[in-house]
């Protein structure tokens, strides 16, 4: 009897667990399904369908018209290119600079490193809005050497959207936390073998830093891709605007919701692609964090 109960309880628990997980998954996936389905419908139908389950189904007058209209309303390709360029370059530079900084904080001995690390981590609590205007004044008065030679002021450029975001407290903190748990023996062995600090960083530490690289990359990618206030302040030319500013092109007085959904579907693609690319390493990182905790 006891064996039967145990046999029956296990599948029941399993079913309940799966039911719960499916319900949670549906909660997360429904907005995306709604967005994609709505992007295929004319406005009138889209608005009518919101009050029923039809909102999540490809039914009625389905077409790609909203996508064509979105491309007519705004230079969607340009905005996507700008965002992907700014985001990927920033992420790549950020991973390099922040991991180097974290390596220095963790493995090198120099006076004041704890204090400086504490200051860097303290920047996490400073909202960007509080430094936006001073930062604008700074970048507006900085020189830059580019194809046009030496110019003053960084406004209306890609680098004004990249450089101020390369180093950030959160990414440094993530790397420091990860590096702290790495076995010191690795470093010592490399030192005994005569490796320089940079060789240890590049050939010993970074090859085993995959999980933290993935985590930091995804978090940084999302933060950069979703930037709104800063590009709004520093890009006066359409040529440099990212996707989030582009979204405003669709909010006229009479909003074409189908076009909004089409645009949102399009700009979601790079985020999903990037996440899927790094998904395995990201989950490994979260899982290993969980085990340590």
């Amino acid at each position: 009897m006891a064996a039967l109960r145990s046999f029956g309880a296990r599948p029941l628990g399993l079913v309940l667990r799966y039911a719960l997980l499916i319900a949670v998954a549906l909660i997360f996936i429904f907005p995306i399904v709604f967005m994609v389905m709505s992007s295929l419908k004319p406005d009138q139908q889209l608005l009518t369908d919101t009050s029923s389950l039809r909102a999540f189904l490809p039914v009625g007058d389905i077409s790609l018209d909203n996508y064509f209209a979105a491309f007519r309303r705004a230079p969607v390709g340009l905005f996507l290119f700008n965002s992907v360029l700014v985001t990927t370059v920033t992420v790549a530079l950020s991973l390099f600079v922040c991991s180097l900084a974290a390596f220095s904080f963790t493995f090198l001995s120099w006076r004041g490193r704890e204090v400086i690390l504490a200051i860097i981590i303290a920047t996490l609590i400073v909202p960007f809005e509080t430094i936006a205007i001073p930062l604008l004044m700074v970048v507006n008065n900085l020189p830059w050497i580019g194809p046009e030679g030496l110019t003053m002021g960084w406004l209306n450029s890609y680098h004004v959207q990249i450089v101020p975001w390369i180093a950030d407290g959160l990414t440094v903190f993530l790397f420091v936390q990860y590096f702290k748990d790495l076995p010191r023996d690795l470093i010592e062995a490399a030192r005994i073998d005569g490796a320089t600090s940079f060789q240890i960083y590049a050939q010993v530490i970074m090859p085993i830093a995959g999980p933290v690289l993935a985590t930091a990359a995804i978090l940084k990618f999302l933060a950069m891709y979703n930037q709104y206030l800063w590009p709004l302040m520093v890009t006066q030319s359409e040529q440099f605007r990212p996707v989030m500013i582009g979204l405003q092109y669709f909010f006229q007085l009479n909003i074409a919701w189908g076009e909004v959904m089409a645009y949102l579907s399009l700009i979601t693609i790079p985020v999903l692609a990037f996440y899927l690319l790094l998904q395995r390493a990201f989950i490994t990182s979260i899982a290993s964090t969980g085990i340590k905790g």
Partner: peptide, 17 residues
């Protein structure tokens, strides 16, 4: 875009642009 216009002007005024 209209939703971003006023803030853009304010930022440009601060920057003298």
């Amino acid at each position: 875009p209209q939703g971003a216009y006023n803030d853009s002007v304010t930022a440009a005024a601060l920057a003298g642009k």
